[in-house]
């Protein structure tokens, strides 16, 4: 009975999350003149073993959301609850045991892995930091084990990062993230720097690892086709807010928010015959500055369906049933 409750309880709850960055001005005495509301009221829950895709264009706050969950940024408002524990105001010491359980995979493994360290040391480093395996031999064995787990040969452990291809480097990045046996991985654009033939290898790796290790993912990406492939549910963000969230089938088949519809229409399908028949509806304009988001609905400046109410009233997320939530006056 108890076990069933634990399994059903969400691993991650994000409630009305706000991350605002101050904009400072002045030469000698700096004072805050404005703030960039990078994330401004984001809420979602994530079950164990589930994958949530976070999509949106640059500046929508998807990466910031990921960093805030890991508490790598200060949270301005709202709550982050990890496995029943409110970690919003945890200090560094309190975060330490939590950090083992949530890890990050970055976009560019070459930028996030020290080129002067051997692969074995790169993977063992977090184990030293968190003091989980006391001696070198044990850590080294574990590192080799992890390499095998991500599809590399254990004997590659003594090489340096420049000796690897982009896809292999990303595998090493994943192995390092897995060193602490985390439960939650925040993956920030983990395949977007890779060539398409390599992307599929890494996407499959993420799916295999989820199966064998029961991992939970927040998968931040701008590629809607990749996100559709890997996610159970998807949240679409625009200027710091979630405009629509739904399971993947619903979101891609029946998108309700005009922005979701515009995003999906903009992605070409690799088939000339299908493309020739698709209506070409291009949404106009570009994402406005996050420094001065439009009043009312943030999308109204580009929305084909905007009316007067959209210019003044910010729509709240409404439940349309079946777990589909949309923030639009006209959906």
């Amino acid at each position: 009975m108890l076990d069933a409750n634990v399994a059903d309880a969400p691993l991650l709850v994000v409630e009305d999350l706000k991350v605002h960055f101050p904009v400072m001005a002045g030469t000698l005495f700096q004072k805050q003149v404005a703030s960039v509301k990078a994330v401004d009221g984001v809420s979602f829950t994530l079950k164990r073993g589930e994958t949530l895709g976070l999509v949106g264009e640059s500046g929508c706050g998807k990466s910031t959301t990921g960093l805030a969950i890991l508490r790598m940024l200060d949270i301005t408002g709202g709550r982050v609850v990890f496995d029943g524990q409110d970690i919003t105001r945890h200090d560094r010491a309190a975060m330490r045991p939590i950090r083992k359980r949530m890890q990050m995979v970055y976009q560019d493994p070459f930028g996030s892995l020290n080129p002067r360290m051997k692969v074995v040391d790169l993977i063992a480093e977090p184990m030293i930091v968190h003091d989980i395996l006391p001696n070198f031999a044990a850590r080294s064995d574990r590192a080799r084990e992890l390499l095998a787990l991500v599809g590399l040969r254990p004997d590659m452990a003594d090489r340096y990062i420049h000796e690897f291809s982009g896809g292999q480097r990303q595998r090493i990045g994943v192995a390092r993230a897995l060193a602490m046996s985390p439960e939650l991985l925040i993956c920030d654009e983990p395949v977007s720097a890779l060539d398409v033939s390599i992307q599929a290898q890494i996407v499959n790796l993420f799916q295999d690892l989820q199966q064998t290790l029961g991992l939970t993912y927040v998968f931040v990406a701008h590629d809607l086709a990749v996100v559709r492939h890997i996610s159970d549910r998807i949240a679409v963000m625009y200027l710091g807010r979630i405009v629509e969230i739904a399971d993947r089938e619903t979101l891609y088949k029946r998108p309700q928010h005009p922005y979701t519809q515009a995003l999906l229409a903009a992605v070409p399908i690799p088939d000339p015959e299908i493309e020739a028949m698709r209506p070409q509806v291009a949404v106009s304009g570009e994402v406005p500055s996050a420094l001065r988001p439009p009043p009312g609905c943030r999308f109204h400046t580009r929305c084909p369906r905007a009316t007067d109410v959209c210019r003044v009233d910010e729509p709240a997320l409404r439940d349309l049933g079946g777990g589909q939530m949309v923030s639009c006056h006209h959906a």
């Binding site: 992307q199 086709a225 559709r228 891609y252 399908i269 690799p270």
Partner: peptide, 15 residues
Amino acid sequence: CVPRLDGALGDRLVP
């Protein structure tokens, strides 16, 4: 190997 918006859900990619 490229996932598509109109691809079948649940299929594994073939890298």
